[in-house]
Nucleic acid binder design. Structure first.
Lengths: 243, 243
DNA sequence: CGTAGGTTTGACTGATCTCAAGTTTGGTGG
DNA sequence: CCACCAAACTTGAGATCAGTCAAACCTACG
């Protein structure tokens, strides 16, 4: 039976192989990384803004998000994450965390020593390329979020977020495109879209009344993917899907 | 007398040296890159969404921005750029452009062959590190923009944008912190903050009436940096200033 | 000195927020 | 299995911020 650590390494290798044509030497280097796994409760902090991170965290199970906070207390979620995602790759090369990383459900995390990973990237160009590409895709998603929050109506923002979540979930083979269970509260959906939880609620109700989705608790069914996609102006290009 | 090409190489080397401790071999590799310079008129496209970019562009003179467009025609500017910035480093590793890159004033551009730069990064780990760190700072700024557009009032958004522009300009030694000339129209400020040009106008007028700025045409004077900074909730941490 | 693009202003509209009161849901201990 | 509790969700009414439309005013430049 595979340990958490073995599972973490397998997940990491699989992910990075999709991002660059890794050779044996590269995957060997990954297997040589110091890793420890941990269980973290829902809403636990993995990294706090201002921290000097010495470890990178890979999400093995559960869901997480990254967020920033206004000095007046306003919270903005800047990304959601699912199993297989590396949560704070930027701390490999930037010394101070500029945002929080937090679980949104109970989760299992693999902590990888940043110095090890940095050294491995330095010694293995293809590994560096895979990691770099991962951060570039991250950045592309941030750009789409700036557009989402800056230029779309409330209903379209929510629809777009649902589409992105569904698409990324399917891409990571975590479930079918049309049926998903949201791990986050409506308050968190609001923090991600620049809306209040009250308005998120109304927009979800509206998407349902438009026949785009069906809901039961946090289970969401996308009734007609093509119509939903169109309504949300969702185009997967920005996810830079590889493999 | 230095040619545009020499100027480009000097600028690039200076920038990357601030981002990683480059060695002689690394800077030699940079000097070996194929480069050609070009003058581009105001509002000219350098990259269009969907393009397969074969060159990376370094901005030598003038100002530029990157933007995305909604299918309904809404435009969102996701970043502004000034001399010394590399505009589309992400195209080194992502094949399709997910956004437009456009000048906002007349500009001088140095085009660097992407394949050359990719190869140089592959062969020189410190060069890769410098470029990677540059893209990570880029991503950090996108995160701050998501927060800006998602969670701040109109007046604070504009104030924050002005602070960022002033700070980056000073950091690149392009002028003093408190006095700047904006290269962009109020419409473009609106496209960057998710507001209409009409509202940008009113917010600028308000910042002036609050005694935070003085304006004359597009010249802006920040009357009291400490107060402005506080009002805008501007904290330079996210710019990850190095050197 | 005429023109076009950019800025400024006003009046009205509408999307989203705020506050506040229910209602449902999921988990926990008896 | 049930009763209870806290958290999350839902709904309503009124307030507000920002958008829309339209006109007038600059200002740089040919």
């Amino acid at each position: 039976m595979a340990s958490d650590k073995d599972q973490a390494l397998a997940l990491l290798v699989a992910k990075l192989c999709r991002l660059a044509p890794l050779q044996q030497a590269d995957t060997d280097a990954i297997h040589g990384l110091a890793i420890r796994t941990a269980h973290v409760r829902s809403h636990g902090y993995l990294v706090r803004e201002g921290d000097t991170a010495v470890d990178c965290c890979l999400l093995l199970d559960g869901y997480a998000c990254r967020s920033k906070t206004t000095s007046k207390g306003g919270r903005q979620i800047v990304s959601f994450h699912m199993p297989g995602d590396i949560l704070d790759l930027q701390h490999l090369l930037l010394s101070r965390a500029d945002h929080d990383v937090q679980t949104i459900t109970d989760a299992t995390i693999a902590w990888i020593a940043a110095a090890d990973l940095r050294q491995a990237a330095h010694d293995h160009p293809l590994l560096a390329e895979a990691l770099w590409r991962d951060t570039l895709i991250d950045a592309s998603i941030f750009r789409e979020w700036v557009l989402n929050v800056g230029r779309r109506s409330g209903r379209a923002r929510i629809a777009h977020l649902l589409c992105e979540f569904a698409a990324r979930r399917e891409q990571a083979r975590l479930g079918p495109l049309e049926n998903l269970e949201l791990p986050m509260t409506q308050e968190e959906l609001g923090d991600a879209t620049g809306l209040t939880s009250v308005h998120v609620n109304r927009m979800l109700a509206e998407l349902q009344s438009l026949g785009l989705i069906e809901r039961k608790g946090r289970k969401v069914q996308i009734v007609n993917w093509a119509r939903m996609r169109h309504f949300a102006e969702f185009d997967t290009t920005y996810l830079h899907v590889v493999g």
